[in-house]
């Protein structure tokens, strides 16, 4: 069966073409201003790459914050469902998924079958997202890759007060003026987002193994900060930014074009314990 999974996020669109569980071709592109157009262009390109035509694809499933923009998709599934479906295939021991993209972050608790048990999101705010790192990298006048590398060199942990990306930027600028080494600032930035992401993760409750996906998972400096924040190991699959598209493709293959995520089935914590 020939299927496609498309993930349109805040900043990039990812496409995967799959035949009977094997990836035939894939591609990524920035969404730009016209997300629909960018998606259609990328889809055509990936089809060409695989030597396929539009009509060869039997089922297309979309996901991502702008998943509904894929007019040619048979269905749209929530990001949490796509993430869970793909991650459980890639790393069967995964129980907590942390997905941090350009404009959103989420934590998902799953069981061994990849069913979403609970999830929490951070949206509509750049704090705790890839955009936060981007903004700070720009203030530091370094690339994201340089920033990741730099923060790994840091031995000094400086707390950042700002939660907001706009205030964070001024804080980074004043740290630069105070002649704080760039690698320490880079780490401070990563620690700050890790703190925020960690807080979201703790809402669903951490359970090992913890898997991180999304574009920000490529940032090795951030992953180190996250490990420290969560005090546990964090597994990063290959090409973590393609996981959403992979999940959508897997859903298409399973014939799932609609899926609801039922959250809040986690066991409640015991209040008596804490109030005594």
């Amino acid at each position: 069966m020939l299927v496609a999974g498309i993930d349109i996020g805040g900043k990039n669109v990812h496409v995967i073409l799959m035949k009977d569980g094997t990836i035939l071709a894939k591609g990524a592109a920035p969404t730009g201003i016209n997300k629909t157009e960018a998606t259609e262009q990328l889809y055509d390109k990936v089809l060409q790459q695989a030597g396929l035509r539009l009509e060869d694809i039997e089922c297309v499933v979309a996901t991502g914050s702008s998943g509904r923009r894929v007019s040619f998709a048979q269905g749209v599934i929530p990001e949490a469902a796509a993430d869970a479906r793909a991650v459980v295939q890639l790393i069967p021991s995964a129980r907590t998924i942390i997905d941090v993209g350009a404009e959103e972050g989420r934590a998902i608790k799953i069981n061994s079958e990849g069913k979403v048990l609970d999830f929490a999101i951070n949206e509509k705010c750049a704090a705790g997202t890839g955009t936060f790192v981007d903004t700070m990298a720009r203030a530091l006048e370094i690339t994201m890759e340089e920033m990741a590398e730099a923060s790994l060199k840091s031995t000094e942990s400086i707390p950042m007060n700002a939660q907001c990306a706009v205030f964070g930027e001024s804080e980074v600028v004043s740290l630069i003026h105070a002649k704080t080494p760039k690698h320490d600032i880079a780490r401070a930035v990563h620690d700050a987002i890790a703190g925020r992401v960690g807080s979201v993760a703790r809402i669903v409750g951490l359970e090992n193994d913890v898997v991180m996906i999304g574009g920000v998972a490529r940032n090795t400096g951030f992953v180190e900060s996250l490990k420290r924040e969560l005090a546990t190991d964090v597994i990063i699959p290959n090409e973590p930014d393609f996981v959403g598209a992979l999940g959508a493709a897997a859903a298409a293959e399973a014939g799932v074009v609609e899926e609801k995520v039922e959250a809040r089935v986690v066991e409640r914590q015991d209040y008596d314990e804490s109030s005594n």
Binding site: N161, Q163, R196, S199, V200, R202, I203, R268, Q269, Y271, S274, S275
Partner: peptide, 25 residues
């Protein structure tokens, strides 16, 4: 004050089985 959303989240304020411990006390 700037992270109350996350700090208070563990007590499930307003939707837990019981009110948050501070409220109960």
């Amino acid at each position: 004050r700037k992270k109350i959303r996350y700090s208070c989240a563990s007590c499930r304020p307003g939707y837990g089985e019981k009110p948050a411990p501070c409220v109960i006390t």
